[in-house]
Amino acid sequence: MNIIEARGLWKEYGCDTVLEDVYLSVAPGDFVTVVGASGCGKSTFLRMLLGEETPTRGQLRLDGAPMPDEPGPDRGVVFQRYSVFPHLTALGNVLLAEELARAPLIARLLGRPRRDALARAREMLERVGLTNAAHKYPSQLSGGMQQRLAIAQALMKNPRVLLLDEPFGALDPGIRKDMHALILELWERLDITIFMVTHDLKEGFDLGTRLLVFDKVRHDPHAPGAYGATITYDIPLEHGARAAERLPASVRSELSSTPDEESA
């Protein structure tokens, strides 16, 4: 059974077509990386997986059932920014996942359940290397540590799929390398499915077991919004193999010149 299944997916905003005719199936345990130029609809596709957007046409399925039309605990997410709550300490951020699940009315745990939840939260912080920062607020953490925290927080729910929206885009290259090691380790150890949007082609090749390229097949110079993007390349990867050569040089140069700022 595929975790994610898209069949003939379209997304249109009025006259603007963003995505057209997208077919995709993602198997459990896949680490899918998605690259594409700015405005190619890869973030729109991620938002549809989140449930923030609904497809205009076509089917999107999660575990065989129609994709819920709002975000839920079965899909964890880490954004480039603002993924953690500034008013909670690192521990509080991770603990929140347990509190929301087990205390529907007051969203706080007391006594023994709280001690159990705290133990789980501390374990998760340790897993991402934030034990010493447990009582710091996000504004006191570096960018890399904030993203570690966001990942820990998302993993508390044991989501079916972890969605990453350019999670390391704002980080320094050195830190980014550490984060790559962390996410690969978590992916291997926890046996999760990851769907990651990135604008860094190398990152896409290094991390994924499968790389998707979103691009427009048809262009109308007089009406830029007339045609949408679709998946133009779907490349299975073996970790460690240099597979970038499988992409035509023209695509490679276009992607690696993608500016850092990603709009929509």
Partner: peptide, 17 residues
């Protein structure tokens, strides 16, 4: 930021929570 509200929902939060 909308990201935070989405994040809270992916953590299972209801409107009230």
């Amino acid at each position: 930021p909308g990201e935070q509200i989405v994040k809270a929902q992916t953590l299972g939060g209801s409107t009230w929570q």
